[in-house]
């Protein structure tokens, strides 16, 4: 009797999950398979048909594209920079906020503001702020005798400007997730540690960090995947320039598809990017789990 009940429960569960799974299949698996399929054809928007099979030619060509290699490299640096910096800043702010007793909602509201703004708008606002002659950033620096800084017109500056704007925009995502993790930590281990004479740092190192590991892992993973996909900011702020200093890979793939109209080639690049992200995610996941 109990077994049949369990079986019926399971069947009911499957039934309830089926529509969701079907929807997922439709919107995730189908596009991925379609992209894989398209990447093996000479499919362009001028001739949008799967009529010329080219096999792995698009993949072979991708490895020969110096621009693609450069874009991957720029993206790697960008992702490392924003994930590491946002994590550092985000964790610090989350720890501070966790200690706040009153007015948490106010801090939340302020911190969440940037996250709620559309990336295109963020890019446009910052472009105005950072105009070297007419923008407010250099004006304020000028008041204290600094600058003027060539924010977006110099390759090295432009890269870091982009990183900083991304941090401004996305760091609250880290804060919110980490803060949720901190708030749910049990109190007992801390009390025990204090009894044993552990200081604030020791508490952080030996209690908070180990307990937070799953949350940190998820936060880093999500942020990493989002960072690889960064496209809007570059599109609005630098168009990949000056030179090739901010040519992120997602923007490069976009250009292959919508400027070059070469959907086949763009699909191949997108598949390669997907593989890279998958490998990175798997590696990070295992690495973080193995840390004790």
């Amino acid at each position: 009797m109990a077994a049949t009940l369990a079986a019926r429960d399971r069947r009911f569960g499957q039934l309830m999950a089926a529509p969701g799974l079907a929807a997922l299949l439709l919107v995730i698996v189908f596009p991925i398979l379609f992209t894989l399929y398209t990447s093996a054809f000479d499919f362009t928007l001028i001739n949008p048909r799967h009529d010329t099979f080219v096999g792995f030619a698009h993949y072979a060509r991708a490895f020969g594209l110096a621009e693609f290699g450069n874009a991957l490299l720029v993206t790697l640096w960008f992702v490392v920079a924003v994930v590491v910096l946002e994590f550092a800043v985000g964790f610090l702010v989350a720890l501070m906020l966790n200690a706040v007793e009153r007015g948490k909602a106010v801090y939340y509201a302020i911190l969440l503001c940037p996250l709620l703004i559309n990336p295109v708008v963020v890019g446009l606002i910052w472009r105005m702020f950072l105009h070297p002659e007419l923008g407010i950033a250099n004006y304020v620096l000028g008041l204290v005798g600094l600058g003027p800084v060539n924010w977006l017109g110099d390759p090295r500056n432009a890269f870091w400007t982009l990183v900083v704007v991304d941090i401004w925009h996305q760091v609250s995502f880290m804060i919110v997730l980490l803060l949720a993790g901190l708030a749910s930590l049990p109190k007992e281990p801390y009390e025990a540690a204090r009894m044993e004479g552990a200081g604030t740092l020791a508490c952080f190192w030996h209690v908070t960090l180990p307990l937070m590991r799953p949350v940190i892992l998820v936060t880093l993973l999500i942020r990493l995947i989002f960072a690889v996909r960064t496209y809007d900011l570059v599109y609005i702020m630098t168009r990949g320039g000056p030179g090739q200093a901010t040519d992120l890979v997602s923007y490069f793939i976009y250009r292959q598809a919508f400027v070059g109209l070469n959907i086949g080639q763009a699909s191949a690049l997108a598949v390669l990017l997907l593989l890279i992200v998958l490998v990175l995610t798997a590696w990070l996941y295992r690495h973080m789990r193995s840390l004790v």
Binding site: E133, L134, W151, L152, G153, A158, P242
Partner: peptide
């Protein structure tokens, strides 16, 4: 030219000229 012109779109460049600079 002004600092940052390597990153100017036409609106930013126009503004520099239109502000009499």
């Amino acid at each position: 030219g002004p600092l940052g012109a390597a990153s100017f779109g036409f609106d930013e460049a126009f503004n520099v000229a239109a502000q009499g600079k």
